[in-house]
């Protein structure tokens, strides 16, 4: 069974008197341990799709299963609990909590959501900060580090609870090319180290090149599925 399954999922938003469709009958399976991207132009429904997988929104119709649990009909508290237990998030604007240090930001999900014991928290946080090469900056506040470093911390924060899935909405949009490449490379390393599945929404070709699987969305419809191998054989970017 796929890690994430979307069956005939639609989502519409009510704008005044008009129902505005954002996703139309999307069905897709996402397997464990890949770098999966959803690409498409702005307004195509990528973020909506990630929000639905991330239990932050509910579909108008269809069925969504994440890690064997149906999540399309969860209530507010249950969806928060599910996100805390199974998912990690990386945001375009990093979204680190400004009053917490690098260490405390990474510790936050373990402390405030998982309620992990202190020794376990310390061990995990330091290990993950080492992994993202931010251990030396652990006592700094977010406004004392660069954008790339912030995104490294955000990756560490998403990974620290060892979720099966990390959802990343345009994670490189605010980064320069060099930093973006490093972040993607970091994600690949983390995927290999922890077996985490990364699901991105992006229209950044730098991510698309590096992805294992690319799904294209246009006007809320999934128009093509491209296995990376196919993509690569048809002249896609080289990938180690």
């Amino acid at each position: 069974m796929a890690l994430i399954q979307l069956n005939d999922v639609s989502k519409s938003y009510q704008v005044g008197q008009i129902s505005q469709p954002a996703l139309r009958n999307v069905s897709v399976d996402i397997e464990t341990g890949g770098l999966v991207t959803f690409v498409g132009p702005s307004g195509s429904g990528k973020t909506t799709l990630l929000n639905l997988i991330g239990c932050m929104d509910r579909p108008s119709s269809g069925r969504i299963t994440v890690d064997g649990k149906r999540v399309d009909n969860l209530g507010r508290k249950a969806s928060a609990a599910f996100r805390g237990a199974h998912l990690g998030f990386i945001f375009q604007s990093f979204n680190l909590l400004p009053v917490l240090t690098v260490y405390e930001n990474v510790e936050y999900p373990l402390l405030m959501i998982r309620r992990a014991p202190a020794d376990q928290r310390q061990e995990r946080v330091l290990r993950i900060l080492e992994a993202v090469d931010m251990a030396g900056q652990k006592d700094k506040l977010p406004d004392q580090i660069s954008g790339g470093q912030k995104q490294r911390v955000a990756v560490a924060r998403a990974l620290v609870t060892q979720p099966k899935v990390i959802l990343a909405d345009e994670p490189t949009a605010n980064l320069d090319t060099e930093t973006a490449k490093k972040i993607i490379a970091l994600m690949r390393e983390m995927r290999d180290a922890f077996g985490t599945t990364f699901v991105f929404s992006t229209h950044d070709p730098r991510i698309v090149e590096q992805a294992d699987v690319v799904h294209t969305i246009v006007d809320g419809r999934l128009v093509s599925d491209s296995d990376f191998a196919l993509h690569k054989s048809s002249g896609g970017a080289d990938h180690a």
Partner: peptide
């Protein structure tokens, strides 16, 4: 608001 959204997205319980 964005901070609250981030905390909520990460799974912070509403009561927290």
């Amino acid at each position: 608001v964005r901070e609250i959204g981030t905390m909520s997205a990460m799974g912070t319980a509403p009561r927290t």
